[in-house]
Design a protein around this nucleic acid. Structure first.
Length: 263
DNA sequence: ATGGTTGGCGCCCAA
């Protein structure tokens, strides 16, 4: 079976329905993983999403902040919510044809890259440590897995517009990129975007709202990721970052990442 | 070096 999986930080699901529709028409994902839905479960716009062809909807939401969702054309099983940071709805997972799909919204970490003075930065690093511990445990299960989401870290030199200028900026500090590398090593996760694009080429999935002309300044970062376990890598067909989505009407500051894999 | 914008909520917080 050929599976198309997309991840999209939509920064409020209720005001971004037109953008979700555009993505579903452009990429036709089987499974669409959303982050920052910013809505409680009973207020989730399920009927609008179902009208786009996503009959199966699984959500873990809260008021105002965070919130994740899995939208699927196929019925999923084994819905699980991890609670790595109590009170924050940042994870939902499910299975399809023996493949586990995990959707994460990893904490952004605030502005100051010092865990002693910034509790949010400490929470982010602890979140990564919890994920690494969890991922390491999965070795025993020997399961095919996909992990997607807004990981809020741009790991490589060319995942940011200026490596040198961002080394002290949260999302690209060495302590964060090392935490992500440690997580990646636990299961030898394959970064599907970089599987198809050389590490020497600039690649971004997020551009700040605070730039007057995002395309002209092009100060992007690659914060959104789709990883697969090694046994799925031979089945990878394509992976694309939908840069054009940044110029859609009422765009999110993130754009979707879409990976096609034979499972 | 600083500030810039967006969304949700409600006169500020998080990103």
């Amino acid at each position: 079976m050929r599976l198309t999986i997309a991840t999209y930080n939509i920064n409020s699901v209720r005001i971004r329905l037109a953008e979700i529709r555009r993505l579903t028409e452009a990429a036709q994902p089987d499974i669409l993983c959303l982050q920052e839905t910013k809505v409680e479960n009973d207020l989730f716009p399920a009927e609008d999403i179902k009208a786009m062809g996503y009959k199966y909807i699984y959500v873990s939401g809260q008021k105002s902040y965070n919130g994740v969702a899995l939208l699927s054309r196929h019925e999923l099983s084994d819905i699980v919510h991890y609670d790595f940071l109590p009170g924050h709805k940042r994870h939902i997972s499910a299975s399809l044809k023996g493949v586990e799909i995990h959707n994460f919204y990893i904490p952004a970490g605030g502005d100051i890259p010092d865990r002693e003075v910034n509790q949010k930065f400490d929470e982010k690093l602890r979140y990564y440590a919890s994920m690494a511990e969890w991922s390491h445990e999965q070795r025993k299960k020997n399961k095919r897995m996909v992990m997607v989401g807004d990981f809020n870290v741009a790991p490589l030199e060319h995942d940011v517009w200026s490596h040198k200028q961002l080394l002290k900026i949260v999302s690209h500090t060495p302590i964060e990129t090392e935490a992500m590398a440690k997580l990646k090593d636990t299961l030898d996760w394959v970064d599907t975007s970089r599987h198809f694009v050389p590490h020497t080429e600039k690649l971004y999935s997020w551009w700040s709202y605070r730039n007057q002309d995002w395309a002209k300044s092009n100060r992007g970062r690659r914060l959104d990721h789709i990883w697969v376990t090694p046994e799925l890598a031979p089945g990878l067909v394509s992976s694309q970052i939908l840069r054009d989505a940044r110029s859609w009407d009422k765009a999110s500051d993130h754009v979707p990442v879409v990976t096609v894999v034979e499972v």
